[in-house]
Amino acid sequence: MAVDERGQAFTHPVYAFLEKLPGISLGLTTADQLLTWGAANSLFIFPMATSCCGIEFMSASSGRFDLDQIGSIPRGTPRQCDVMVIAGTITVKMAPRVKKLWDQMPEPKWAIAMGSCAISGDFYRDIYSVVPGVDTFMPIDVYVPGCPPNPDQLFEGIRRLQEKIRLKRAGEWTEPELRPDTPGFKVPSLPRVGDPARDASLDEAQLDAVMNLDPGGMLRRSEG
């Protein structure tokens, strides 16, 4: 069974026709393995570098750590990239831009949240202008903790992502078990988007603030 990167089986008339041909499954399996090998070992990275973690990302891509050795190079445009590395704090003003750049990336695509600001907002999460974790508005595949994480830890994150790509395309991926809530754990003051505890008017106010921040009206969408 072929699965896409979201773990859902996909069907196509050509695929159904091909499966009936004698001996084609062997070729398809080989082709699938080849594609998986290629996808996992040539991850082009789009650095969404906003703050301190961006400097560590630059260190990772420079001489000593050498991101090229695992077939990854940073590119300046989202249209050429497979992985978005979100390195740094994402503010309410920046979040729509990040989402727009994420939407511009071609499928299949993955995202790595690098650093505690991107993961949860860290100590800025109670601040009025900071998004408490980028997974509030876009899917994240791998979280690399640290403030900022060393380049070695970023490499470990990329290796985990490669493993995830291989397992997902082979259909062997199981979602990791979530850690149960610790009693007495301090919940972030701003409930996440989609949380039933979150006030709907908060969403509207935040959206309104984001849309009307820009004097140029670049983000103002047509009504209806």
Binding site: T89, F123, S129, D214
Partner: peptide
Amino acid sequence: YPGYLHRGVEKLCEKLSYVQIPPIVDKNDY
């Protein structure tokens, strides 16, 4: 148009004690 990395550090400093502030301002000029 600045403000895309506004993290409210000055407001955060009013919430934290003197000992906790130096690691916060590290992230200003990183």
